[in-house]
Design a protein around this nucleic acid. Structure first.
Lengths: 341, 341
DNA sequence: ATTAGCACTCGGAAGATGTGAGTGCTAACA
DNA sequence: TGTTAGCACTCACATCTTCCGAGTGCTAAT
C-alpha cells in the first residue's frame, strides 16, 4: 500500500506526464502548490516508487516517467471521476439530434468521441446474437440479375446483388422464394444455415428439379454476414500525439486498423462494463504500445455493441473514462427509448 | 521537340528516379548499357533538359530529379505500354471469382490494386444518375420503430431505421405506405424530392389528417442518399514510400482521406477515360504533393464509377496506367455481362 | 561534336563540445 | 528521524566543426 505522500507524488507525475509527454523531475514536482516538500525529499519518494516499479527512468539521470504498472495503479486506485459537463453536453446533443438514423448516430458518435479526446475511436455495431430473420425478399432487376434483401428483427438490412445462372427456370425460382419466406422468417439468424440445410433442403428436393444447384446457390445468398460493422472516427487525430513521430509506429498502427477482422475479434471479446488495457496487457502484438479502453452499450436486452478508444499508453484516462461512460449510457438510453417503448 | 538523345536521357533519369527516389547523376546514366556517352556529354544534355524545365536540381551540385513538367512530358510522350501479365492475371482472378457479390468485387479490387502498386486505391461506386426507384418498403420492427428500404433499378439498396413518432396513427401510416408505393416506384431517384413535393404532398393533404407532419417525416425517410460509396484499399501501403518520412505529410494525407465528401467531389468530376494529374496540377490544396491517376468503369449504359490511385508524384506511371486500364476493362466487362445479357 | 580534366559546391555523416536538467549521496538541521 | 541543502556526477540533446564524396560547370584537347 502506498503512503499518502507517495500517492500524491505518483499522481502528480502521471498527470504531468500525460500532459507533456516529457520525463518529470523532482524540482518540477516540488514547485507545485499542493506539495510543500523540497526536491531532495521528492527524489527519495521517487526512488521508492521506482523500486515499486511504478515509475521508470529513460536514462540514468533523467526524470521519471510512469511505467505500465504505474498507469495501472493510477487507473485502478488514483483516478477520481471528473466533471466534463461541456463534453458530455456535446455527446448528448449528437445523440438526441439524430434520433431517426441509427447508423448515422453511431458514426457521428465515433467522430465526436475522437474529436473530444484526440484519440482514435472505434465503435462496433451491436452483435446480432438473438436477432431473428424478419423478412427475406428477392427482387429481379433484369432477367439475369436480382438483389436479395434480408431484414432482421433488430432492423439490420443485408443485401446482395447477384446474377442468376442461365440454367435456372423462372417458375422454379418463384417457388424457391416462396419456400424461403415460408420457412426462414422468424428463424434466429444464427440458425439460418441449419434450417437451410435441413428443412429447406428437403423441400427443394421435393419441388425443384435442379435442387442441388439451387441449394448451393441459395446458400450463398442467404448467408447472413454476421460480422458486426465498424465505425471508425478520427484515424488521423492520433498522429498529433508526440509518440507517433516515427513512421514505423504509424505504419504499424494503420496496418492494424486496416485489418477489420482483427479489430472485431479484439473488441468482440469485451464483456459488459468498462475496461482499460494498457500497453503489454494487450494480447495483440500490434497494439502493445497502445492503450485500449472499451465499454459496451446495449441495444435491446441481449445485444451488445462495443465502444473503443485507441491511444498512447500516456492517455488522458481520467477524462476518457468519464466520456466513454457517458457515451455508453447515452447510446443505451437512446436505443432503449427507441426500441422498447 | 526533344532530340532522340534528350528523350533517352530524360527517360533514363525519370525511370531511375521513380525506382530509387534519389537524384540521378551524369555518371550513373553514362554507365548504362543503352547509353554510350561520357558523363560530360550527358551533363550537357542534362543542362539542356534543365533549361527546358523538365529536370531540376535539389541543390547547385546535386544530380537531377524530374520536375512536374518532366513527369507530364514523360506521361504524355515517353511511356509505352508494358506487359504486366502477372498482375493482370491477378486482377482477372479477383473479378471472376466473386461474380455474385457486387460490393465485394469492388472492395476487393481496391485492395488488390493497392497491393499490386503499393499506392492507395480508391474506388468510387457508380453514380445513380439514371436509376429509378424499384421498390419502397417500410417494415415495422416494434410498435415504435420501423425500417425503410429503398431499392433502385440498379440494385442499390438503401435502408434507414427510424422511430415512429407517438402521435402517428397506424391506419394513416398504412395509407402513406400505399401512396408511396403507388406514386414513387419507377420515378428516377433524382426526381424523388420533386415528386414527393408535388404529387405525394397533394395526396397526403387529401387523405391524411396530420399531413404536414407526415410530409416532413416522409421526406427524411425517402431522401435517397445519392452520395456514391467509397471503397478504400491500402491506406497504409503508401506509408512505405520514402516521401512520407515526416509525420506532417502523413497527417495531411490522412486528413484528406477522412474527408469523404471532398474525395467524392474530387473523383466525381472525372469523365470517361484515363487521366493523370501530377502534383500542382491538382486543384485540391491537400494533394498538391501527390499524383492522382483516375479512370472510369461503366455499369450499364450511363452509370460511371471511378477508380483512383493516389501516390507520390514519383509514381510508377508506366505500370500503374497499364493496371488501371486493365482493371477498368475487367470491371466494365463484368458488369456488362452481369446486367445486360 | 565529344570527352577528359579540374576546380568548385554542397548535403550529410561523424565527431567534438557545451549545456542543463536531472540524479544519488552525504552531511547538516529541526 | 524525517527533511533539506549542497555537490559531484550523468547523459540526452542541440550546436558546431570537420570531412568526404558525389555531383556540377567550364575549358581545353581530341
Amino acid at each position: 500500500m502506498l503512503t499518502k505522500r507517495q500517492l500524491l507524488i505518483l499522481q502528480s507525475i502521471i498527470d504531468d506526464f500525460i500532459e507533456t509527454a516529457h520525463p518529470i523531475g523532482s524540482r518540477a514536482i516540488s514547485k507545485k502548490a499542493k506539495i510543500n516538500l523540497s526536491a531532495a525529499t521528492i527524489r527519495n519518494v521517487m526512488a521508492d516508487l521506482e523500486d515499486m516499479e511504478l515509475l521508470e527512468k529513460t536514462h540514468s539521470s533523467s526524470g521519471r516517467i510512469p511505467s505500465e504498472k504505474g498507469y495501472r495503479y493510477y487507473v485502478d486506485h488514483v483516478i477520481a471521476p471528473t466533471i466534463r459537463d461541456k463534453e458530455i453536453a456535446i455527446i448528448k446533443n449528437i445523440i438526441q439530434d439524430n434520433m431517426i438514423e441509427l447508423e448515422h448516430v453511431v458514426q457521428l458518435s465515433a467522430e465526436v468521441l475522437s474529436q473530444l479526446t484526440n484519440y482514435t475511436a472505434i465503435i462496433l455495431g451491436p452483435n446480432e446474437v438473438d436477432a431473428t430473420l424478419k423478412q427475406i425478399q428477392i427482387i429481379n432487376l433484369t432477367p439475369q440479375t436480382a438483389v436479395a434483401i434480408l431484414v432482421t428483427s433488430t432492423g439490420h438490412v443485408e443485401h446482395k446483388s447477384f446474377s442468376i445462372p442461365k440454367g435456372f427456370n423462372v417458375s422454379d425460382f418463384e417457388k424457391v422464394v416462396n419456400i424461403l419466406n415460408d420457412r426462414l422468417v422468424g428463424v434466429p439468424i444464427v440458425k439460418l444455415p441449419y434450417t437451410l440445410q435441413t428443412e429447406v433442403y428437403e423441400l427443394l428436393k421435393q419441388h425443384i428439379t435442379e435442387h442441388e444447384l439451387m441449394y448451393e446457390y441459395i446458400q450463398s445468398i442467404v448467408r447472413y454476414d454476421d460480422t458486426a460493422k465498424l465505425y471508425v472516427g478520427g484515424q488521423s487525430n492520433i498522429l498529433m500525439q508526440p509518440e507517433f513521430k516515427d513512421v514505423e509506429k504509424i505504419y504499424e498502427f494503420y496496418t492494424m486498423l486496416e485489418d477489420e477482422d482483427e479489430i472485431i475479434k479484439l473488441l468482440a471479446e469485451q464483456h459488459d462494463g468498462l475496461k482499460v488495457t494498457i500497453g503489454n496487457e494487450n494480447k495483440n502484438e500490434a497494439i502493445k504500445n497502445f492503450s485500449l479502453i472499451t465499454t459496451t452499450y446495449k441495444l435491446g436486452v441481449n445485444q451488445l455493441g462495443t465502444i473503443a478508444l485507441f491511444g498512447p499508453t500516456r492517455m488522458e484516462y481520467r477524462k476518457v473514462i468519464t466520456l466513454l461512460k457517458s457515451l455508453s449510457n447515452e447510446m443505451t438510453d437512446l436505443f432503449y427509448v427507441t426500441f422498447n417503448k
